[in-house]
Design a protein around this nucleic acid. Sequence first.
RNA 1: GUGGAUGUAGCUCAGCUGGUUAGAGCGCUGGAUUGUGGUUCCAGAGGUCGCCGGUUCGAACCCGGUCUUCCACCCCA
Length: 456
Amino acid sequence: MAQKPSIPKGTRDFTPQEVAKRNFIFDIIKTEFKKFGFQAIETPSFENSDTLMGKYGEEGDRLIFKILNSGDFLKKADESAYADKDSLKLTPSISEKALRYDLTVPFARYVVQHQNEIDFPFKRYQIQPVWRADRPQKGRFREFFQCDADVVGSDSLWQEVEFVQLYDSVFSALKLDGVTIKINNRKILSGFAEVIGEQDKLIDFTVALDKLDKIGEDGVVKEMLAKGIAEEAIEKIKPIFGLQGDFAEKIEALKSILSTSEAGLKGIEELEFIQNAISEMPLKTAKLDLDVTLARGLNYYTGAIFEVSAPEGVKMGSIGGGGRYDDLTGIFGLKNMSGVGISFGLDRIYLVLEELNLFPEAVADDVKVLFVNFGEKEALYAFKGVNALRAEGINAEVFPDSAKMKKQMNYANKRNIPFVILAGDEEMAAGEYTLKNMKTGEQDRLNLKDIIAKIA
RNA sequence: GUGGAUGUAGCUCAGCUGGUUAGAGCGCUGGAUUGUGGUUCCAGAGGUCGCCGGUUCGAACCCGGUCUUCCACCCCA
C-alpha cells in the first residue's frame, strides 16, 4: 500500500446504488427494444485494426485505443517509421488490434460475416461498452455504454417512423419528459450544397451549419468563408438560418429553397412521410422537430439523421443519435444493404435523470429482511427462517456475527432494510419470530407463514 | 490534440502578506444503553496538504513539471 491506487482517466467505478440506477435504465431500454422486435447480439471488445481504422475519419482514427501486439513487438516494427518518429506510420506494425469505438461498425462486420444465417430485414440491438481516447469532460468518458438498435435490409421509411416511436417509448418509460427528437435528412443538406453550387464542400458546409445554435449566424458565415465557400453562395442560403415555425411550415419554406435540387426535394418527401405518419400516431411525451442545421454524425449517413436533446435547461450534449446509411456493409464487401439505426447514451441519460431527480425511490432490489443474530442456537433458528423466506423469493439475510444489538440494528438502518426479525429463547419456544417494521417501529410475534404473507 | 481552471480527513470545505504541533461540519469507531436502529450527550481514531522537483533559514501557501477532475475548442453518446 505504498501508493494510492487509481483508475485510468475517463473510467469509473460504480457503487451498488449506481449499478442499480444504471440497471433501471438498461432494463427499460431493453424492454422497449424487445417490444419493438429487436434481437440482442454481442461482439468482441476488440476488433482487428483494419475493421475499425479509417471508418470514422481522421479524427476518429486518433481516438481509437490501439492494443500493443503481444510478445516482442519491436522486432516487427517498421524501422524507418520508428527512426523518423512517425507514430502514424509506426502504429500498424506494432498494433494489429483495437478496442471497439462504437457498435455500428462491428455490427456491419457482423452482418457481412453472418449474412447467410441472417433473416433479413434483421433488427438487432446491442448494449455494450465502447472506448474512445478522448479528453474527458462532463458526460464524456473514455469508457461508456452505447445502446444501439439498427435494422438492415430494408429501405422502408416505416423504419424511420418506428425509430421515432422507439425513442418516444423509451423516454416516456423513463419518465423523462420534454426531450426533443431532432430530425434532418442528408439529402436536404446535399440539396443546400447543390443549390449554392458548392457540392465539393458539403462536409465543411454542414459542419459549419451544425454550429448555428452555438456560434450564431455570424459565426457560421465566418467559418464558411474561412473554408472557402463563396460569399454569394452563403448569401443565397441565408434563409435557412432563420427557418421558423412548426414542422409543416419549415417543410413549405424548404420546398421553395430547394426547388431546383432533385436530391433536396427527395429529402423533403422523406421527412414529410415521417411527419405525416407521426401526426397520425401522436408521440406520448417526446417532441419531433425538424432541424436543418443538424448535420452531425458520421459521414456515412445518407438519409435521415436523428439526434435527441435533453429537456430544456439541462446542460448536456445529445443523449441519443442515429440515422440511415444506405451502404453500411459496402466497406466490408456486401453491397446494397441499407441500414438505419439509433443509439442511446446510457451514461448521459443517467446524468440527466440524476440532475432532474427522476430515479424512482425504490430502484435497488435491496434486502427486505435482516435476521438479528443472538448466538449459535439462535443463528440456526434464524437461518431456518431465512431459508423459508428465500424460498418465497424474498431477499433476506442473517447477520453473520452475534454482534451487539445496536450494531445489527444500525446495519439494517444504514442499508435501508425495511424489516428486521428477532428470535431468541421465547420465540424459539413458541415456534415464532418477532417481526419489526423499521419505518413505523411496530413489532409482532408471528409464525413464518404470517410473516411471508405480511411482507411478500 | 490545443488553451484555461482545479486538487487540504471517507465527504463538503476553512486555513490571513510563506512562520511552531494543519482546523470545522458531516460521516466513522467506542461508551451512556449487555433483546431494539433513527434523536441526544460524552470520548476517540483518521491527513506523506494529488505526486515529483525547485526557491527559501522555513512551503498547504511561491515557481516548474506531472497526474486527476472540470471548462472552452476539436469531435462526440
